[in-house]
Design a protein around this nucleic acid. Structure first.
Lengths: 69, 97, 69, 97
DNA sequence: GCGGGCTGACGTCAGCCGTG
DNA sequence: CACGGCTGACGTCAGCCCGC
């Protein structure tokens, strides 16, 4: 057909724009979900490191307290 | 405050009593927020406690070093050498009994 | 009006259900946004604590190294 | 790997070069993920480094204590008392020069 | 200045799961 | 089992910001 061979049709332009925005929205939601999972994983890692550091600091503090006392 | 009412803590595990992934990974956002807030409070408390302990130890050690440097005074739980031999009784052996 | 005085009208029931779900969706989005902010704030706090703990551990480790060496 | 390509690090601040809230708080999720991944890698490296240092110090101290307990051998940078007086030269004063 | 990529917010549908 | 509260996922609109 020659009537809408190009994208000059305003309806066609709108549909194309909507289709692009649809796909963009899917990717955006996917990235947002991945970001939230990244945050949760980061919190878990930081939690473990924090716990280990506190225990190590307690041990070293007791050792230092023995040296001085 | 809004989830299951953390203030009361009346009944035990409310929903399903599931031990699987319902406790550490709730579905409701309110419970997630409450859980993270609770953990953060506990970890902050432990952190501040350790830092306070370190500060206390530091001050104690510094005071001890300052006391040792200012004067040759031995003060400790060990038998004080300055007080040995002052009294004649310390030289008398108890083998006479 | 007696025609839709009760909620027997299926159209009315649908609209009521949609209205409830609308408000629920708003609250859900608000809670989700708050949750993400909570995660970001938690990451920041844990980051500062870990940094402080690492520096303190370094200092205490140097002090303990001086005592032994 | 997908955002701005952390592997290359070619040009400096790309977008707008804004120093405000564009660097530590990007709009794109890809940049947020990349930023958090980078920070996590740095902090994990620092954490492991400190833990390695602590382990090394522990092992060194334990080896030192074990060496001191097994034999009455004094080994240090201070003047060794066991080697003082062995040679007669140590008793001769150098005032003759 | 303007078009286009990303994202925030909305309403709607479908589905899970706790509650009666 | 049926019902309802929350949430996941979708498509759409509006808006920001960056590159042209």
């Amino acid at each position: 057909g020659l009537s809408q061979g190009k994208s000059d049709d305003p309806t066609m332009k709108r549909e194309i724009r909507l289709a692009k925005n649809r796909e963009a929205a899917r990717e955006c939601r996917r990235k947002k979900k991945e970001y939230v999972k990244c945050l949760e994983n980061r919190v878990a890692v930081l939690e473990n490191q924090n716990k280990t550091l506190i225990e190590e600091l307690k041990t070293l503090k007791d050792l230092y307290c023995v040296k001085t006392g | 405050m809004s989830a299951t009412g953390t203030g009361g803590c009346g009944p035990g595990p409310g929903p399903t009593s599931g031990s699987g992934s319902g406790a550490s990974n709730p579905r409701k956002f309110s419970e997630k927020i409450a859980l993270h807030t609770q953990r953060q409070a506990e970890e902050t408390a432990a952190f501040q406690e350790v830092m306070m302990d370190i500060t206390s130890t530091r001050l104690q050690a510094q005071k001890l070093r300052l006391a040792r440097s200012q004067g040759p005074y031995y003060s400790g739980s060990l038998p004080n050498v300055n007080q040995i031999g002052r009294n004649p009784q310390d030289f008398q052996v108890t083998d006479a009994a």
